[in-house]
């Protein structure tokens, strides 16, 4: 029991744990976002990633069961929301979409509705696949979810009836301001926090699977994992949809291995056990990536100009993940929730 208590930070609702992250996200988004147009875009992307990392935290972080399949739900969300919101005129005339089903080409719905639909589709598909997948654990779960991602990628890459295939879907409306993605990220954060402190979250963490030799799964654990998987699928669908409305396009490659790797890295670097870890990981990877990107472009940072060869950024992120795992496999936050620094005594 000792061990379980140490793994998870959250046990009961605490205002600090919830509002700390909310304040930090809001402040960081506004301060950085309004400083330049290119940083505004970076912040918007960061918020999408954060929702995706939250989605992973709900399931992977709490249950300890690895999933490479969330990219599939994000992909689905992006295609659903992108296709629903792209103007009818573009869908009927774009060269990349001559095969598109007429019924899809003729629909157009409002951005907010399509985001909701994307989340629902992600949740429903995760719910259905979860019925089967949640019987697996350990490595089998990792491989099976990887297969799910493979099927989704192979389908969307080659299918031109339900999307642009390997090409980009043009004309996806972009978010008009920072506040919509910010609000969505905060809603996701609150939802995830509430789930984590609920009995479902506690059951998930109590039965966290840290090794392959986990005992046979009881029916109740499978049920709880299914619920978490469906919810995290919905959030992944939302994250994918948000990403399409920041990028202004949908391209299947954007949600494949690179995306899966990046978001899993964020979660693991930050610490998969808590939403605070999800936030720290996302912030860390994005800001390091941004600084390196500016170096690659030869821009001066704090008056310093360091030239980096192209590609250094990607190397650095991958190396950070590996080093972070070697240094502390439970992540920078060690799986703990946000707390104000306490100088009086070292909590244990």
């Amino acid at each position: 029991m000792e061990k379980i208590k140490n793994i998870s930070g959250i046990t009961r609702f605490s205002l600090t744990e919830l509002f700390g992250p909310i304040l930090i996200i809001t402040a960081a988004s506004c301060l950085i976002g309004f400083s330049s147009a290119s940083l505004m875009l970076t912040v918007q992307f960061a918020l999408c990633y954060f929702v995706m990392v939250l989605a992973l935290q709900v399931f992977v972080g709490n249950s300890g069961v690895l999933s490479f399949g969330h990219g599939a739900f994000a992909m689905l969300g992006a295609f659903v929301s992108g296709l629903l919101t792209a103007p009818v005129r573009i869908k009927n005339n774009a060269l990349s979409m001559t095969d598109l089903l007429q019924s899809i080409a003729d629909i157009q719905v409002n951005l907010y509705l399509s985001l909701l639909i994307a989340a629902i589709v992600g949740g429903v598909v995760a719910g259905i696949t979860g019925v089967f997948l949640m019987r697996l654990n350990g490595l089998a779960a990792g491989i099976a979810t990887f297969a799910l991602l493979g099927v989704a990628y192979n389908f969307f890459f080659n299918n031109t009836k339900f999307g642009p295939g390997s090409q980009a879907l043009p004309g996806v409306p972009k978010f008009q301001n920072l506040f919509i993605p910010l609000l969505l990220a905060l809603v996701a954060l609150v939802l995830v926090y509430l789930l984590n402190v609920s009995s479902i979250g506690r059951t998930l963490r109590a039965t966290r699977e840290d090794n392959l030799a986990a005992p046979a799964l009881g029916i109740n654990i499978i049920r709880v994992r299914r619920i978490a998987f469906a919810l995290s699928g919905a959030l992944a669908g939302l994250a994918g949809a948000m990403y399409s409305h920041v990028a202004g396009t949908v391209q299947v490659q954007d949600y494949y291995l690179g995306f899966t790797f990046l978001t899993l890295s964020m979660l693991v670097i930050g610490g998969s056990g808590s939403i605070w870890g999800a936030l720290v990981g996302t912030l860390l990877v994005i800001s390091v990536g941004q600084v390196l990107l500016m170096m690659e472009q030869g821009k001066a940072i704090f008056g310093l100009s360091i030239d980096l060869p192209n590609g250094a950024r990607a190397i650095f992120i991958a190396a950070t993940l590996v080093v972070a795992l070697l240094w502390r496999s439970s992540g920078v936050t060690n799986g703990k929730e946000f707390a104000f620094p306490n100088f009086k005594k070292k909590s244990n």
Partner: peptide, 20 residues
């Protein structure tokens, strides 16, 4: 550290080497 961590690490190493 458990199979999940090792799997992610190998994934990370794979991407790292690709970039190198």
């Amino acid at each position: 550290t458990g199979p999940a961590i090792m799997l992610i690490a190998s994934f990370g190493l794979s991407v790292l080497l690709q970039r190198v």
